[in-house]
Design a protein around this nucleic acid. Structure first.
Length: 899
RNA sequence: AGGCCCGUAGCUCAGUUGGUUAGAGCGCUACCUUGACACGGUAGAGGUCUGGGGUUCGAGUCCCCACGGGCCUACCA
């Protein structure tokens, strides 16, 4: 019966089927009791309410390639999936969602709001995991985790309490980054700095009791309403006499002192600085040093408060305008100059961050950072590419305390309770009945939640059952590897290393591979809000998930960002189609062959495939020996590349083998053998073909799981075998290696290619068969050509190939190497003049190459200093080129004489 | 302000410790609809590695400078 195989690969027809199958059969469920070396990896948890973007696609492709590769090589493999509750962004999304329905979340109240978020999570939260299942990621779905699940919460509280007890977590009032839109404090990392063109306003502050002014320069005039001093450098002669006197703060009519502080740069501005301790980090420090009042002039949503006098109620930007106008009106504005400043922007809301005094929870980082620095220094954690190490060290060595609390409702609530009588703090794993200090039962829990990164920082061990010594924890921790983007090296990776070492005593992963960013054609970061993001799901539908994966892998050179294009994707799709058609060739021709009685089940059983390559009359045919040698080389290349996260090299190696070696040469070469009337020969050819094809599929599987799964199932498999993903990765068998076969076929390929080149130069009709000559002084080379004459004649469309040891004479187009000469007679279109011109050009190039080598070899310093190997190589090439040159010149003389 | 990275074929990028005539994909040119594949086949053109200087027998590869582009960190009002 004839097999039905579509003419072109249609991924849409097969992908959903296998994606579902893999999940339903729970094929990738890890067994912590199983033996073998361990490969474990946890997913960087994507936002629970998000959807798969192209960056995930790259990251997950890399993770899944390595996961599948290890699994197939017999590792006890765990790829643990999960999602992140993503405090700020999720809360923002749900708040907006409610607002669209006319609901004010504040009016709902905390409890009801939290219910709404959980409801939202239940509806939208599975989108990304569904997408991950759809693209066939080989996760253990039975171990899926969520950063805000009760289990994870328990771990978070445990960690918080321990750190508090160790005095690494503390509560303090200080200047923090405040987002007036998100209405929460932010950590330093969540503030992005942007250079913006601004102004420097020079404001005159009248000196009390005189007619003089002190001029201060500021970039934020509205904050002057909260000024509590003016500072000058103690060494500044201009202001020496004024230190200790007072100025009258304009608009507020408040007397404030002129103080001296080293912080002031005499060169900048006027050398006098207004001090606003409640609204500027520098000023805050100065204020604390000089015990100045801290006057907060703003509300939490960025408007001016009662402390701002007449400006109360105005938005901060409006207040700025009004302050400037009023100063101008009072003749207190000396001048305005242009000034660029790096301004702090909230990562989420993109609004300008307001430095603000606030009481928050902090984590002391220095003690945590030290061991984390040491671990990377010692190489306990390998960082790839390793130039990121410097960035890591630099940040870690200058690390500052981490603002942990967030004024949100969605997240891990801080396990701290305050008694209402004395505001004593009780930090506990479970809600306490009474105050730990005074015993009061009148307690209130801190309303704030923890920074989302605090819980994700525990991810590698919280997901595996810590603090319990679970079987999973013992087996899979530390994880083998982490793959994530370099943009969250500090946010996440560094914190995991610090917390992992602190709590488990071990590094959380043995290596970190920091993948690239996928950028738009113009090189920008893709962004959903700008609409420049590519939707991987749509692209997967268009090109096939396998093509997308392969494309990303082949572009994923460590350290280089990826610019994805339709052309590249099409190229990968074409590769998938090529494989599909190779399979189609196999099966279509097998149908014909099976009419002779030998069925697929005999040719391609797993046992039969394991015994390849097969011999004919006691000898493995050259091309089969060659193919398996090439396969062994490809396997080694892929293994070596993946070991070093060189995805692009691995992908390229597979591509070259499958397309270049297997399709272009091997299949073409064995075509006649497959239908050979000598049944024994044909059967051997088929067996070798299937064995090679099967191995190639397994080699390709980590890159293109769907296509290979589909085709693998078309081959006979062991009873009960469920998936190529659980089959073995091909091994570069020692008995496959064969340098003789490699060089023999290389020579034949060279001959064939040269013949085709001559044909093209002669402008021969591709179908026209012609007589050709091959000449070589070496008998072994001649024997090789004679033995493979049929294949060569077919490849080069020859009616006959004369093999001789004599120099080639007579008319015709030639090709020469030091080892052999080829010739095909001239055609009506192409005559000796064309060949003469070509020869002259070639001779010229060769003479140049020879001259430069002779010069180099003649140099005594070179001869004495260069390694033996290089000299020998050079001499050998030179000898060959001389022979070649001699041949070309002789040939040229012949033709010139004849014409 | 400090630190890092990049500048190689028309485009996107490889090029592992410096070593013989610098590679790939896409694009381009010519020919070919041959029964796996036009999402294909065969052959070919095309870079002297941003510029300058240096180290070396030898540099795309190491060092310095310049130019161009990108990124990160940072409390200059």
């Amino acid at each position: 019966m004839a097999r039905e195989i579509a003419k072109a690969y249609e991924p849409q027809q097969i992908e959903p089927r296998w994606a579902e199958y893999w999940v339903k059969e729970a094929l990738f469920k890890a067994d912590s009791n199983a033996p073998g070396p361990v490969f474990s990896i946890v997913i960087p948890p994507p936002n629970v309410t998000g959807s798969l973007h192209i960056g995930h696609m790259l990251e997950h492709t890399e993770i899944d390639i390595l996961t599948r590769w290890h699994r197939m090589r017999g590792y006890n493999t765990l790829y643990l999936p999960g999602t992140d509750h993503a405090g700020i962004s999720t809360q923002r999304v749900v708040v907006k969602h409610l607002m669209d329905q006319g609901i004010d979340y504040k009016k709902l109240g905390r409890e009801e709001f939290e219910k709404q978020v959980w409801k939202w999570k239940a509806e939208a939260g599975s989108q990304i995991t569904q997408q991950m299942k759809g693209i066939g990621e080989s996760c253990d779905w039975s171990r899926e985790r969520f950063t805000l699940s009760p289990e994870m919460s328990r771990v978070v509280r445990e960690v918080f309490v321990r750190l508090y007890e160790e005095k690494l977590i503390y509560r303090e009032t200080r200047l923090v980054n405040w987002c007036p839109v998100c209405l929460t404090v932010l950590s330093d990392l969540e503030v992005v700095h942007e250079e913006r063109q601004g102004h420097l306003w020079h404001i005159k502050y009248p000196v009390v009791g005189t007619k003089e002014f002190v001029v201060v320069a500021t970039t934020r005039p509205e904050t002057m309403l909260g000024d509590t001093a003016v500072a000058v450098n103690p060494g500044d002669e201009r202001y020496k006499g004024l230190i200790g006197t007072k100025v009258l703060l304009p608009l507020m009519n408040r007397e404030i002192p002129i103080i001296a502080d080293e912080m002031v740069d005499r060169e900048f501005g006027t050398g006098a600085v207004k001090i606003t301790p409640a609204h500027d980090p520098n000023d805050f420090e100065v204020g604390r040093r000089h015990k100045l009042a801290e006057i907060d002039v703003m509300t939490d949503d960025g408007r001016m408060n009662a402390n701002a006098g007449a400006y109360a109620g105005l938005d901060r930007f409006e207040a700025r305008k009004r302050v400037v106008e009023d100063l101008k009106a009072q003749n207190l504005l000396e001048k305005i100059t242009e000034h660029t400043t790096a301004i702090g922007i909230c990562e989420r809301s993109k609004t300008i961050v307001e430095p603000r005094i606030s009481t928050q929870w902090f984590c002391r980082m220095k003690p945590l950072a030290e061991p984390a620095i040491a671990a990377v220094e010692r190489g306990e954690i390998r960082m790839v590419p390793d130039n990121r190490r410097e960035e890591y060290f630099n940040w870690m060595r200058n690390i500052r305390d981490w603002t942990l609390s967030r004024q949100l409702w969605w997240g891990h609530r801080i396990p701290a309770w305050y008694c209402k009588e004395h505001a004593h703090i009780t930090v506990a794993r479970e809600a306490p009945a009474k105050c730990a200090t005074c015993g009061s039962a009148n307690l209130e829990q801190d309303p704030d939640v923890l920074d989302t990164w605090f819980s994700s920082g525990l991810w590698p061990f919280s997901t595996l059952g810590w603090p319990e010594e679970t079987a999973d924890f013992k087996k899979y921790y530390p994880t083998t590897l982490l793959i994530t983007g370099y943009d969250i090296l500090f946010f996440w990776v560094a914190r995991m290393i610090m917390l992992g070492i602190h709590f488990t005593g071990k590094v959380p992963f043995g290596a970190v591979y920091l993948h690239s960013l996928v950028r738009t054609a113009s090189g920008e970061k893709m962004s959903k809000s700008k609409g420049t993001g590519l939707d991987p799901v749509a692209l997967n539908l268009q090109y096939g998930t396998d093509a997308m994966r392969f494309c990303l892998a082949s572009m994923a050179a460590p350290g280089t960002d990826i610019i994805l294009s339709d052309d590249r994707l099409a190229g990968a799709r074409n590769f998938a189609n090529k494989i599909w058609n190779a399979a189609r060739f196999l099966f279509v021709n097998l149908d014909k062959f099976e009419e002779g009685g030998t069925k697929l089940e005999e040719l391609a059983t797993p046992e039969a495939r394991a015994k390849a390559p097969y011999a004919v009359s006691g000898k493995v045919p050259l091309v089969d020996a060659w193919l398996f040698a090439r396969l062994a080389g490809a396997i080694e290349l892929v293994n070596e590349a993946l070991k070093n996260y060189r995805f692009h090299e691995a992908a390229q190696g597979v591509y070259q083998f499958f397309w270049g070696d297997f399709c272009d040469w091997y299949i073409e070469w064995v075509k006649p053998e497959l239908q050979n009337t000598d049944r024994e020969r044909a059967i051997a050819a088929w067996k070798n073909l299937f064995a090679a094809f099967d191995a190639a599929l397994r080699l390709l599987h980590p890159f293109m799981p769907f296509l290979t799964e589909e085709l693998w199932h078309q081959l006979p498999q062991k009873a009960g075998a469920k998936s190529i993903a659980l089959d073995r990765f091909p091994e570069a068998r020692v008995d496959w290696k064969n340098t003789k076969a490699l060089s023999d076929v290389a020579l034949i390929q060279e001959v064939v290619t040269a013949m085709r080149t001559i044909r093209a130069e002669l402008k021969l009709d591709p179908k026209k068969k012609v007589q050709a000559d091959f000449s070589a002084g070496d008998a072994i080379a001649r024997d090789l050509i004679v033995a493979n004459r049929a294949a060569i004649e077919r490849f080069a469309a020859l009616s006959g190939l004369r093999v001789t040891s004599e120099r080639l004479q007579g008319d015709g187009m030639t090709r020469s190497t030091s080892a052999f000469d080829l010739r095909i007679p001239f055609t009506e279109i192409v005559n000796p003049q064309v060949e003469i011109a070509r020869l002259k050009k070639e001779i010229e190039g060769l003479q140049k190459a020879i001259a430069s080598k002779e010069r180099q070899l003649g140099d005594e310093t070179f001869r004495s200093r260069a390694p033996e190997k290089i000299i020998k190589g050079l001499e050998a090439t030179l000898a060959e080129q001389r022979i070649e040159l001699q041949k070309l010149q002789e040939r040229l003389r012949q033709l010139e004489k004849g014409s």
